[in-house]
Design a protein around this nucleic acid. Structure first.
Lengths: 227, 227
DNA sequence: CGGAAATTTGACTTCCGTCAATTGCTGTGG
DNA sequence: CCACAGCAATTGACGGAAGTCAAATTTCCG
């Protein structure tokens, strides 16, 4: 479904480069691309982890559900990000394409084999896992102790850092997604954004009122209490 | 300060065993023990990470602070647990002894060197980091989406698994610590425990009313909504 | 263009936090 | 051994930040 297989060597080099493998590597890995339509699942929690993914275009959410439907998004994966990297053999989140999303696939097995032989790959695997851990640790502080305004400010700062184009943040995700990431309701997120708008901390781009926000970084940073 | 250096080989073997190093390893590592008094800091956030620690006796909390004093405890480290393992060179949490606590110390540098030469050590480092990540991921769900009763139930289940002695959970930490771990106030934790007591889900051991709780596991599990 | 979906906004509720008083426990010193 | 100081925990009364429910408005997309 929505498959596009590629053996483009340029892709292979770049993708593996992220994992610390020299582009002239003669290791054989199966590498190809898939495109997922908006809203479709990439993999489910507890499914066997056969692939590791890198976002080439689009955006992905990964989340856990409680039995009654409450959802917690653990991370958004944007262009360039690698996700689906598990140490055990099972995925610990469900992931879905937020918008139409193209990913590169790397077979987990081949990655494991490369890690065995190449300590550089192994080290980068650890480094990536540590980055994820650090993000989760900071997010625990946000979820456990920050107010709604602080959470939304922190979210905008994070997205500004990760996907800004000259002061404009083209958010791919809905208010509900933001809410489930921040441990709030969509109404509370909307109210916080309105408040930030009143305070002239953020603005909205002319016609496309929703998805794009313009930032006044200085004030925003003051609203998110770090450390 | 409260130092006790040891070169006991049995300690060395056990400690390194946790990291996947054969006990007959002829690698040289500096290994010794420290005892920290109740309430004292082991290391601070942003300090250089010189050592990795293993709890030999006692209990440790690791936390982050916001500038106005709000605290989020990310994890409790109990007997046998390894903590202070960072990939970068800085600690990402402050850690303190909850009660009088003895830890084993392993020099970070020597661990890194062993990981270079031994892929088994390297793999176990990754495995431990992944375990921490998994804990943080589950805790994000708790902090973002669970009610106070669900949080306290989940906490008791976790502690039951980690430090129970035949149905009795000898909690080393205060209500405030539990609250800062669960993203609540100590009053809310106390009320939740009282509620669980009324519901005959938990009981308290005779004289020592506070620190020890007795469990009725079945009902408790029903109160914590998993997945 | 029109219906569906997303977002905003308002009114009201609720769960948890805040503040305060009380009780219970621990440890020290007379 | 007991008294008392000091801290931890419980309990109650009240308030507020965020949640719920609902309606209006805007945007999206076929």
């Amino acid at each position: 479904m929505f498959v596009r297989v590629t053996t483009d060597l340029a892709y292979r080099a770049t993708s593996l480069g992220e994992l610390g493998i020299a582009s002239d590597s003669n290791q054989k890995v199966s590498l190809n691309e898939f495109t997922y339509k908006k809203g479709t699942e990439i993999y489910g929690e507890k499914e066997p982890a056969e692939y590791v993914y890198q976002v080439k275009a689009g955006a992905v959410r990964s989340y856990k559900l409680l039995s009654d439907g409450r959802r917690q998004i653990g991370a958004f994966h944007l262009v360039g990000d690698i996700f689906g990297l598990e140490n055990g053999s099972e995925h610990r989140f469900t992931t879905e394409a937020i918008v139409s999303t193209t990913v590169r696939l790397i077979k987990r097995r081949s990655l494991e084999m490369m890690a065995e032989s190449d300590p550089m790959v192994s080290r980068n695997l650890l480094s990536m896992t540590t980055d994820n851990l650090q993000h989760a640790e900071n997010h625990m502080l946000l979820l456990g102790r920050k107010t709604s305004l602080e959470r939304v400010a922190a979210f905008l700062i994070e997205m500004d850092r990760r996907l800004t184009a000259a002061g404009v943040i083209p958010l791919p995700m809905s208010r509900r997604d933001i809410a489930d990431y921040l441990g709030l309701t969509l109404e509370t997120v909307s109210r916080a954004l309105s408040r930030l708008h009143e305070l002239d901390v953020i603005g909205f781009v002319g016609s496309d009122q929703r998805q794009i926000v313009l930032v006044n970084r200085r004030q925003l940073a003051r609203l998110d209490l770090q450390n």
